Simulated assay, not measured.
Amino acid sequence: MRTSLPVRILAALVLVFLPAPLIIVIGASFSPGAVLSFPPPGFSLRWYGEVLGDHGWVMAFVASAGIAAGAAVVTTIAALGAALALEHASPRTRSIAETMILAPLLFPHAALGIAFLSWLVALHANGTMIGVFVSHVILCAPFAYRPIAVSLHQIDRSVAEAAEILGASPWRTITTVLIPMLRPGLAAALMFSFIISFDEVTVTMFLVGPEFSTLPVKIYGHLADSADPVVAAISTILIAMTGGMILLLDRVVGLGIFVDIEEDARGNA
């Protein structure tokens, strides 16, 4: 059946509209002027040099990358353990446990920020990198658990059962049989967790201290004081980094895992 002309026009407009903000940000990052503007009056790498030559921006990037990488690894390992533990649990137990894991999605991030701040103050860990790290692990848990649970649901369990029958220990079965089969879910969990942690600003604003700041929080503070294109340059770098991660994920495990996650979510709705 041929698609009508209005539908094709609407689809074309959507395809143009969706990447438009990214194109504007990328174009503005090459402006030689001191004010954020699009289209840029010329071409210059001035603001990229400003970012790379500023110790504050570099350290904020390193802090965000370090926290995000650590949170991604810890969250993925914890999500894998939770998925394996809940695989044979009763429906009621599994439902309660999954509700707790997915709880960070149910509350406004501002409320979570205040809750985490109160908790960290009680532990004398407010304003520290470890406090931000622990909070990000909790925030990333839903995004790591879902792809792993979907992958675990899709694999052929008879392979693991055959390994156990042949004498493999539970640990050996997990490390040599299950984990290789769960590679798509693990890769998606790592990427989701890294991006969510790296981009998190609302909760983190409540938790950073005078000794360090993450990149999103520093960007937010900079926008309150200045309208220069340095933020556009940083955003362009982050867009390129995210695009590279997506291409890497596509090359390693394929992007079909995201379709599977969406279908599983609809099936459980």
Rank of each mutant, 00 (worst) to 15 (best):
A111T: 11
A111P: 07
A111K: 02
L112T: 04
L112W: 03
L112R: 07
G113P: 06
I114M: 12
I114D: 05
A115E: 06
A115H: 07
A115M: 09
A115S: 13
F116W: 12
F116D: 00
F116T: 03
L117S: 06
L117M: 11
L117Y: 07
L117P: 01
S118E: 09
S118C: 07
W119D: 04
W119Y: 15
V121P: 01
V121K: 13
A122P: 01
L123D: 11
H124N: 15
H124F: 09
H124I: 10
N126V: 13
N126Y: 11
G127K: 00
G127F: 01
T128N: 03
T128M: 03
M129L: 15
M129Y: 11
M129Q: 13
I130T: 14
G131S: 04
G131K: 02
V134F: 12
V134Y: 10
S135F: 10
S135P: 05
H136Q: 14
V137G: 06
V137I: 13
V137R: 02
I138M: 14
I138L: 15
I138A: 13
L139V: 15
L139C: 07
L139F: 14
C140H: 05
A141G: 06
A141F: 15
P142L: 00
P142N: 01
F143T: 01
F143R: 01
F143N: 00
F143I: 08
A144H: 03
Y145A: 07
Y145V: 07
Y145C: 07
Y145K: 08
R146N: 12
R146M: 15
P147L: 08
P147S: 08
A149P: 00
A149C: 04
V150F: 05
S151P: 02
L152W: 01
H153I: 08
H153T: 13
Q154E: 15
I155A: 09
I155Y: 11
I155G: 10
I155P: 07
I155C: 08
I155W: 11
I155R: 11
D156W: 06
D156H: 05
D156L: 09
R157T: 14
R157D: 12
S158K: 13
S158Q: 12
V159K: 07
A160P: 06
A160G: 10
A162P: 08
A163I: 01
A163P: 01
A163K: 00
A163D: 04
E164L: 15
I165G: 06
L166W: 09
L166P: 10
L166Q: 14
L166E: 15
G167L: 03
G167N: 07
G167I: 03
G167K: 06
S169K: 09
W171H: 12
W171K: 11
R172H: 12
I174R: 08
T175K: 03
T175S: 10
V177E: 04
V177Q: 00
L178D: 04
L178R: 10
L178F: 08
L178Y: 08
I179Y: 06
I179C: 05
P180W: 08
L182I: 04
L182M: 05
R183L: 10
P184Q: 04
P184E: 04
P184T: 02
G185P: 02
G185F: 02
G185D: 06
G185M: 03
